[in-house]
Simulated assay, not measured.
Amino acid sequence: MAGVFNKKLQLHGFNNLTKTLSFNIYDICYAQTPRQRQEYIEYIDEEYNAERLTGILTKVADIIGANILNIARQDYEPQGASVTMLIAEDKNKENQQLTNIEEPGPLPESLVCHLDKSHLTVHTYPESHPENGISTFRADIDVSTCGRVSPLRALNYLIHSLESDIVTMDYRVRGFTRSVDGGKHFIDHDIDSIQNFIADDTKERYQMIDVNIYQENIFHTKMMLKNFNLNDYLFGGNTSDLTLEEQRKITDRVKKETLEIFYGKNISG
Rank of each mutant, 00 (worst) to 15 (best):
I218M: 08
I44T: 06
S268W: 10
D192N: 14
D27A: 06
K93L: 15
E77Y: 14
Q97S: 11
I261D: 03
E131P: 02
R178W: 05
E102R: 06
L152M: 06
S150A: 13
E103H: 08
N24E: 13
F5T: 04
L242Q: 02
K93H: 13
I198H: 00
I213Y: 10
L244D: 15
I250D: 04
E47R: 12
L244S: 13
I166K: 03
Q97M: 10
L225M: 15
K117T: 10
N100A: 09
V149C: 09
T33W: 13
L259C: 04
F23P: 00
L53F: 07
Y48K: 10
D62N: 12
Q215Y: 08
E102A: 14
P126H: 05
L230H: 07
E102I: 07
I250V: 11
E245N: 11
L234G: 01
D200F: 12
C29L: 07
S268R: 14
G65M: 02
R174A: 15
S135G: 13
K93E: 15
G237I: 04
F186I: 11
L57N: 01
G183C: 13
I25A: 02
D90W: 04
F186S: 09
E260D: 05
E94N: 11
P108Q: 15
T20K: 08
L244M: 11
R205H: 04
R178I: 09
P126N: 02
R37V: 03
N92W: 12
I261K: 09
Y40K: 07
Y157A: 02
C113H: 06
M169K: 01
H129E: 10
L69C: 13
H129V: 03
H129M: 04
N266D: 13
Y233E: 01
H185A: 02
C113M: 09
I166S: 01
V83D: 00
T18R: 09
K59F: 00
E216Y: 08
G55C: 04
N15G: 05
E163T: 11
R37I: 04
E103C: 09
F5L: 08
I56A: 03
L230M: 07
I87L: 04
Y48E: 06
V149Q: 04
L162S: 03
T221I: 04
L17Y: 05
R172S: 12
N100S: 12
R178Y: 05
N266Y: 03
T239W: 00
E109I: 11
I141L: 15
M85Q: 08
E51M: 12
F5H: 06
G237W: 02
Y26R: 07
P78C: 05
G65P: 03
E204N: 14
P104F: 01
H12Q: 15
R138T: 09
N238G: 10
K59H: 11
A72M: 13
M1A: 13
N196G: 10
T99R: 05
V149M: 01
F228D: 14
D62K: 14
T251M: 01
N229V: 09
T99H: 05
F137P: 00
R172F: 05
S179L: 05
E109M: 14
T258M: 11
T58M: 11
Q79L: 14
M1C: 12
N266F: 12
L11D: 00
